[in-house]
């Protein structure tokens, strides 16, 4: 099967389950280590961001992830009912400043955007919907 779906609750421990699901998917698709790494990292960053900044509780919050592979492209959809937040509008950290002087933060979203292709965001029916693609190298 070239598709997985995962419901994630608002709990950091869920990151382990997320990674296991990605590993299962990556094994099935025969993904190479670089694609596998970047997919895992990007999705960890995206989900952690919702858990930490979505203003959700385990009782009220839900995150739904769909991964689907077609023609050597992984299509990803991530939905959550947290605070309205468009990660694509986030300003990138200023990497020209020597990194000791930089404010440590905003890194997760930066990596998400670096590691994925064709990101798009919309807000509908009380849900943040982030769609992404990842080309298989």
């Amino acid at each position: 099967m070239n598709r997985i779906e995962l419901d994630i609750t608002i709990d950091h421990a869920e990151i382990e389950r997320l990674k296991q699901a990605i590993t299962t998917f990556a094994d099935r698709m025969g993904l190479k280590s670089d694609t596998r790494f970047e997919l895992t990292m990007a999705l960890e960053e995206a989900v952690v961001n919702i858990i930490e900044h979505g203003e959700l509780t385990p009782a009220t919050g839900h995150i739904h992830l769909v991964l689907h592979c077609r023609k050597r492209i992984i299509h990803i959809e991530l939905r959550d009912n947290g605070r309205r937040f468009d990660p694509l509008q986030e300003r990138s950290p200023d990497f020209e400043i020597p990194f000791d002087e930089r404010k440590v933060g905003g890194l997760g979203i930066f990596y998400l955007r670096q590691m994925m292709d064709n990101l798009a965001y919309r807000y509908a029916d009380g849900e943040n919907i982030l769609t992404m693609q990842k080309r298989i190298s």
């Binding site: 895992t40 990194f99 440590v104 890194l107 990596y111």
Partner: peptide, 16 residues
């Protein structure tokens, strides 16, 4: 085998 931004942050803080 793996690092995420949380790990990078610890390295940057250590450097600081």
């Amino acid at each position: 085998d793996y690092i995420s931004s949380a790990g990078v942050r610890v390295v940057l803080k250590t450097k600081k």
